[in-house]
Amino acid sequence: MSQVTMKTRVTELLGTRYPIVQGGMMWVGRAELASAVSNAGGFGILTALTQPTPEALVREIARCRSMTDQPFGVNLTILPTATPPPYEAYLDAAIDNGIKVLETAGNNPKEFIAKAKASGVKIVHKCTAIRHALSAERNGVDAISIDGFECAGHPGEDGVGGLLLFALAARKIRIPLIASGGIGDGRTMAAAFALGAEGVNLGTRFCATKEAPIHDNIKNALVKASERDTNLIFRTLHNTGRVLKTAVSDAVVTIENRPGGCEFKDIQHLVSGQKGRVALETGDMSAGLVWAGQVVGLIDDLPSCAELMSQLVAECRQHLVSAGRYFSAGR
């Protein structure tokens, strides 16, 4: 029996069997997960800044390539900071080591786009608002991955959920569209396609797989959580983030909402990225933040990436076919 495949502009761009992308997640986007997703027919992504140096990224690319012969990419998130990492050196490491697709997020300098495209690299830009997507399209990116407010990480300040955001983006954007945030099963994947997307991006759902390089305590917490078990942090600082509801994130919300407000220095001791890394690697939920989207409400098992991919595609196909049955020819 032949293997089911899907064909959209996203599969053609990425060279994959399915238009399913693994999000580039800090501390999680490592070779173990990226290779498993790619081997299962999706598109795995290494997170550049998870690696301490550009040289370490070169080694991680080589390690991933030893684990899969399928396409995978690199995420480079560019954020304004007082002491920025050597973004261009990470970019060069990806380009010089044969990466053909770059997922960018945050700021997207035109010079980085030009440099990548001059080397034949395709760019998928991840953003949270239609205006940012249109700007990225004008700047020459090859595809847009747009995050609904349900997503983990930083969903922007507009508060627009995926149902409306995906439909608006599909109406206004001409290049391939990838829906991100709130996608966790075949039903939500089918909904994204019905709204006009040609691919989906999964982050939290891929954290709850056998190959995800995080502690089982964290994976089990994702399985147990409901759609109500996330917190919005940094809301008062206009840098909203969605994380799993834990004692740590509850404390952040309490400090933010106290009379007189809050400055970042008041919560910095709770939210550092290194503390989040400790939580993911040790399973100690009190060590730091655990980033997760509302899609945790759909997660009730810990499959392999291959099992998850097969289930997503089969369920998506089933729901798209089922929806067509609501129509009948007129007499």
Results as ranks from 00 to 15, higher is better:
Thr236Phe: 03
Leu270His: 01
Val271Asn: 00
Ala287Asp: 08
His319Gln: 12
Thr246Asn: 02
Ala287Phe: 05
Val223Arg: 07
Ser310Ile: 02
Asp250Thr: 11
Ala279Gln: 04
Gln311Phe: 03
Ala323Ile: 14
Thr236His: 07
Ala323Thr: 12
Val290Cys: 05
Thr246Phe: 01
Asn217Met: 08
Cys305Ser: 11
Leu244Ala: 05
Lys219Ser: 09
Gly276Lys: 10
Asp266Cys: 07
Val223Glu: 07
Ser322Arg: 15
Asn239Val: 06
Leu302Val: 15
His238Ser: 08
Val243Asp: 02
Ala279Tyr: 04
Val296Asp: 00
Glu256Ile: 05
Phe264Arg: 04
Glu307Ala: 11
Leu320Ser: 13
Gly260Val: 00
Cys262Tyr: 08
Ala314Tyr: 14
Val271Gln: 00
Ile218Ser: 03
Asp301Gly: 07
Leu298Ile: 05
Met285Phe: 10
Thr254His: 11
Met309Pro: 12
Asp250Phe: 08
Asn220Lys: 11
Gly297Asp: 13
Asp300Leu: 08
Gln274His: 07
Leu244His: 01
Asp284Phe: 11
Gln274Trp: 10
Gly241Tyr: 08
His238Phe: 06
Gln274Glu: 12
Gly241Leu: 08
Asp284Arg: 03
Arg235Tyr: 09
Phe234Arg: 09
Ser286His: 11
Glu211Asp: 15
Leu320Gly: 13
Ser272Tyr: 03
Asn257Arg: 13
Phe264Gly: 07
Val253Ile: 07
Leu312Val: 11
Val313Phe: 00
Cys316His: 08
Leu302Cys: 15
Pro259Val: 10
Leu270Cys: 10
Cys305Asn: 01
Arg325Asn: 14
Gly283Met: 11
Ala247Gln: 12
Thr246Glu: 03
Leu237Tyr: 02
Val321Thr: 15
Pro213Cys: 11
Asp229Tyr: 02
Val253Asp: 01
Val295Gly: 05
Val290Ile: 15
Cys305Glu: 04
Ala306Met: 01
Asp250Ile: 09
Ile267Cys: 01
Val252Thr: 12
Gln274Arg: 15
His319Phe: 13
Asn220Ile: 09
Pro213Thr: 09
